[in-house]
């Protein structure tokens, strides 16, 4: 019988940006899908369905970008679980050990749980990838958005992507990354649930309150 202790792991900016990201990804995926494939057609010319979808998409794009920037800043000023070294387990020997251990658990090779205070190594690597995907969405999104005004701010900031990827290439990338993020979200919720059940560390609750149950020996 192990004795776990309650520890404050996720600071409030981490939790806040997490939930902003959740809301943004849901709204941006639904409105973005509609913009790409308008599945609702209306009969009245005085409607403004696509207009509102695009408006929501752009507003939440700004919110999402701010959330991303805040989280980026917190990678430098947050606690050890929020800082960027936590997201690069491949950079340390202990990290590699953690990668192997988590991988063996997930693939049913061993029964020994990874037990991490912050993210387990595989989760951390997934989040690094997702953080990059977020950036790709922001850059491709604003490059496409900037086309309404060539020479304007967003065109100046990200318009240089156009000659590299091509206009349609940017669109396709923006579209495919949305699906990758939806795939990630499914995996993310499942893994959280699995670890909550198996580790009994309250990981699902921790993203609301910030506290996890930690085995002091594993620290």
């Amino acid at each position: 019988m192990k004795t776990l202790e309650l520890r404050y792991v996720w600071e409030w900016p981490v939790r806040l940006t997490h939930w902003f990201n959740v809301i943004c990804i849901i709204v941006l995926s639904v409105t973005g899908y509609y913009i790409g494939d308008p599945f609702v057609s209306v009969s009245s010319t005085s409607s403004y369905v696509m207009g509102w979808m695009r408006f929501l998409h752009f507003v939440f794009a700004y919110v999402f970008t701010i959330s991303w920037v805040v989280r980026l800043i917190w990678m430098f000023v947050g606690n050890q679980y929020a800082r960027f070294p936590a997201f690069a387990p491949w950079a340390s020997k202990a990290g590699w050990k953690n990668i192997a251990r988590t991988f063996c658990y997930y693939t049913f090779v061993k029964k020994e749980l990874p037990h991490c205070v912050g993210h387990n190594a595989l989760a951390a690597m997934a989040y690094s990838g997702v953080f990059v995907l977020f950036l790709i969405q922001i850059m491709t999104g604003f490059a496409l958005y900037g086309q309404f005004q060539p020479g304007g701010f967003w065109d100046g900031a990200f318009g240089w992507l156009l000659p590299i990827f091509g206009n349609q290439g940017l669109r396709l990338t923006h579209h495919i990354v949305m699906w990758l993020l939806i795939g990630f979200a499914i995996h993310h919720v499942y893994s959280g649930w699995l670890m909550d059940v198996k580790e009994k560390n309250g990981v699902m609750g921790s993203i609301f309150g910030g506290y996890k149950f930690i085995d002091p020996d594993e620290d």
């Binding site: 019988m1 192990k2 004795t3 776990l4 202790e5 309650l6 658990y105 997930y106 049913f108 029964k111 020994e112 749980l113 037990h115 699906w179 990758l180 939806i182 795939g183 499914i186 995996h187 499942y190 893994s191 649930w193 699995l194 059940v197 198996k198 580790e199 009994k200 560390n201 149950f213 085995d215």
Partner: peptide
């Protein structure tokens, strides 16, 4: 991709649920 992800993790979940003896045996200390 999304459907395949859901199916894959669903299967993983079933396997994990059937797996015994990997859970932490715990008591919480505040």
């Amino acid at each position: 991709l999304a459907a395949a992800t859901a199916v894959a993790f669903g299967a993983h979940g079933v396997a994990s649920a059937l797996r015994k003896g990997d859970e932490t045996d715990t008591k919480v200390k505040k």
